[in-house]
Design a protein around this nucleic acid. Sequence first.
DNA 1: TTAGCATATGAGATACTGTATCATTAAGAA
DNA 2: TTCTTAATGATACAGTATCTCATATGCTAA
Lengths: 153, 153
Amino acid sequence: MLKVDLQMIENERAKFLRHLAKAGRRVSHGREIIFDEVMRSHGHFTAEELVKECLQKKLKVSRPTVFRVLNDLLEAGIIRETAFGDKHRHFEHVYDEKPHHHAQCIRCHNFIEFPDRKEDKIYHQYLEKQGFKILGHEMHFYGICKDCQLKEV
Amino acid sequence: MLKVDLQMIENERAKFLRHLAKAGRRVSHGREIIFDEVMRSHGHFTAEELVKECLQKKLKVSRPTVFRVLNDLLEAGIIRETAFGDKHRHFEHVYDEKPHHHAQCIRCHNFIEFPDRKEDKIYHQYLEKQGFKILGHEMHFYGICKDCQLKEV
DNA sequence: TTAGCATATGAGATACTGTATCATTAAGAA
DNA sequence: TTCTTAATGATACAGTATCTCATATGCTAA
Ligand SMILES: [Zn+2]
Ligand SMILES: [Zn+2]
Ligand SMILES: [Zn+2]
Ligand SMILES: [Zn+2]
């Protein structure tokens, strides 16, 4: 989960600028605005949420630019895309995070994170025995969070 | 994984007919065609694949009907929906299957299945301690399958 | 400062998956 | 065969993401 940490934000900004410089891209208005907005967001977010936030705040960025900068941030290793069973693109911050999985509440759609355990290795062995080269894995629990259970009738 | 098994298909067809009768629905042309097409498909499939298959074979069914019958088959317990990190609806057959997870090849998009192990329980304990009520979970590995590794340059 | 070029951007079109509407067709009972 | 009702397809639509391309902007070199 994201703690506000100005030093970290500056580190990430430096990383972003280095990436842009190396790729011969410019530090444009859109990239600065959206970088700031992403850094302000906590935990997980979707592309749509970010677009809506920018429109509400009347930031001078368009929908395609949001998606373009999200791709820049992915390339720069500042955010990571996480797959879920819906039609939205989900992202989360990379910094200061240990490998973890997600549990999502089907009512409020919030996430709980839990650390990756080496017990998953038993599956690795099984797959590797079949010649499958593992590049990654995600575990996704779904259910009802504590708060939403309390709200139940 | 699906073995062609005529007896099983007849069992599933009977189950489908029972379900339709109980719900007061008709055994229509579209339902028969799409049931057959689903039974012909092996393993996992998406709604889009099924639609394309029907169009290619010039079967007399429309896109909305494919989706409607998929919902019928879900209700009847003949197929089950599985969530993946893309924007497609994924389905698989229910019969003769034990709880399992999926590994998907990023090249050919085929699936390998592996059985669910009780080692996942360690995550259950963690989440339940936080008051999260678990309704289900999926584990999704991605990587490169044996065949695609052999095809590499 | 200015000119010139390459990149970034936004408006709008487009792709793609999935649903909703509704007039028409067809299943199944009598 | 007739009648009632469910099923269907054509079409429009919703929602997310991407593409196109003319224009705007940042950057570099005079
Ligand atoms: Zn909740
Ligand atoms: Zn996370
Ligand atoms: Zn493969
Ligand atoms: Zn499966």
